[in-house]
Each structure stands twice: as structure tokens, then as C-alpha cells.
Simulated scan of single mutants.
Amino acid sequence: MIGPFVNGASVIVGSLTGAAAGNRISENLRTKMPLVFGVSSMGLGIAMIVKVKYLPAVILSLLVGTMIGELLHLEDAIMKLAGKTRGFIDRIAKPADANLPHDEFLSKFVAILVLFCASGTGIFGAMNEGMTGDSSLLMVKSFLDLFTAAIFATALGFSVATLAVPQFIIQSSLFLLATRILPMTSPVMIADFSACGGLIMVATGFRIAGIKPFAVANMLPALFLAMPVTALWVRFFVH
């Protein structure tokens, strides 16, 4: 298991570097780079979407999954947790930008939480490595996360480093469960799962770039529905 460790380390190193540098990193770089991160997230998302096999099944998963997320108020729960995390970290170390509005902090924190912990690339990459030993997807994600963490930590402070914990837990769990999960799937199910994750990645990119504040956390249940819905779609609608 290499990928989850490397990805977690990249978040920690990037976060600590960015938080320590703080305002010493130019305002122009701090302002412009999130746009690049947003575009990178959208690009990864599009690359995953084009693998789709049954678009109706993916859209249905996204719609139902988002409805579940909205009913459960997942984003609100994550924002409350993020607020508590900020308070805990601020008591330990001075925040990188003490003047950052609380609402802006929460919005950015949730966006990078999804990007780090719940992206289709990370989830599928961990599963793929567990089954095949190929860690290349998580390595690519690690490069993106390293620079993303550094730039966002200049404003969000050391709180960003805490995201390495849930990220590692999620990826290592999927790695360990991959031998049981993937044998029950098909290439079609995996492709549609990837496409569903890609749509969420695109929404995350819009949010990171400050274009449209999608409630991406509420879309996450769709990832758990994508494979079962595709399997049912193939069974009842494909002849």
C-alpha cells in the first residue's frame, strides 16, 4: 500500500509549507492558483466522465444521491465539523489568515475536503491499487493535492493538514476492501462509477474556482449508488 501514504504525506507537507509561509506567498499567486486547481479538478472530472457507459444510470445516481445528501444535510454537518476543527487548530497555532471570514473558511474547507477525500480519482485509485498494485492514479492525485494544500493553507492555516487523516482512512479502507469489492463489479459498473465521480469533480472545480458554489458534499451519496444503479440498469434495460 503506497498510494494512500504518499497522498496523505503530500497533503501534510503542502499544508505545513503553505501555513508556515502564509502571507509571504504573493497575493497574485494565492489568488490565481485556485483557478488553476479548479480547472485541474474539472479536467480530471471530464477525463473520468468520458468513460461513461450508461449515462441515464449515472444521472439517476447523481440525482437520487444528491437528494439523499440534501435530506441528510451532509454539507451542514461537515461545515459544523469544519468550524470545530478551525477552533481547535486556532487554539494550538495562529491561523494563517485570522481575518478570513468564517463563511469563506467553511466554503473553501468543504471544497478541498471533497477534492482530497471523496474525489472519484482518490476512491477509484485506492481501489485500483488494492486490486492491481498500480498506484499511478494516486500518485497523480498526490501532485495536485501537494500544491492545492499549500496554496489553500496560506489562508486556511494548519486546519488543511487535518484532512490527511480522513483521506488516509478512506483510501486505506478502500484499498483493503478492494479484493472483496472489485470482484463483484464489472468494467461497465466501474466506468459509470468513475463518470459519477467525474461529475462531482467538475462541480468541485467550479466551487474551488469561485464560479458556482455547488453543495458538493451533498452529492457524495451518489458514489455509493453508481455501481448498484448501473447493475440494475444493465439487468432491466439493456438487451
Rank of each mutant, 00 (worst) to 15 (best):
Phe5Asp: 03
Val64Ser: 04
Ser135Gly: 04
Phe175Cys: 08
Phe88Trp: 14
Gly133Thr: 04
Ala203Ile: 03
Ala222Cys: 07
Val39Leu: 15
Ala47Met: 12
Ser61Met: 09
Val188Asp: 06
Leu100Cys: 02
Met67Arg: 08
Ala111Arg: 05
Val165Leu: 14
Leu146Glu: 01
Leu81Val: 03
Trp233Phe: 15
Thr31Lys: 15
Asn23Trp: 07
Thr148Met: 10
Gly87Trp: 06
Phe224Ile: 06
Phe109Asn: 03
Ala118Asn: 07
Val114Pro: 11
Lys32His: 09
Ser186Asn: 00
Asp97Val: 10
Gly83Gln: 09
Val188Cys: 02
Val140Leu: 14
Ala226Trp: 08
Asp134Ala: 10
Met189Phe: 06
Val58Gln: 00
Ala226Gly: 11
Pro187Ala: 01
Leu16Trp: 06
Lys80Val: 05
Ser172Thr: 07
Met139Cys: 09
Thr230Met: 11
Ile92Leu: 15
Lys141Gln: 07
Met1Trp: 04
Met219Gly: 09
Ala93Tyr: 12
Ala215Arg: 15
Phe206Trp: 07
Ala217Asn: 09
Arg24Lys: 15
Val160Ala: 12
Ala215Thr: 07
Leu156Val: 06
Met184Ser: 10
Ile181Leu: 00
Ala96Asp: 10
Met127Tyr: 02
Thr85Cys: 13
Asp134Asn: 14
Val110Asn: 03
Gly38Leu: 11
Gly45Tyr: 02
Ala164His: 07
Leu232Phe: 12
Ile200Cys: 13
Ser40Tyr: 04
Ala153His: 00
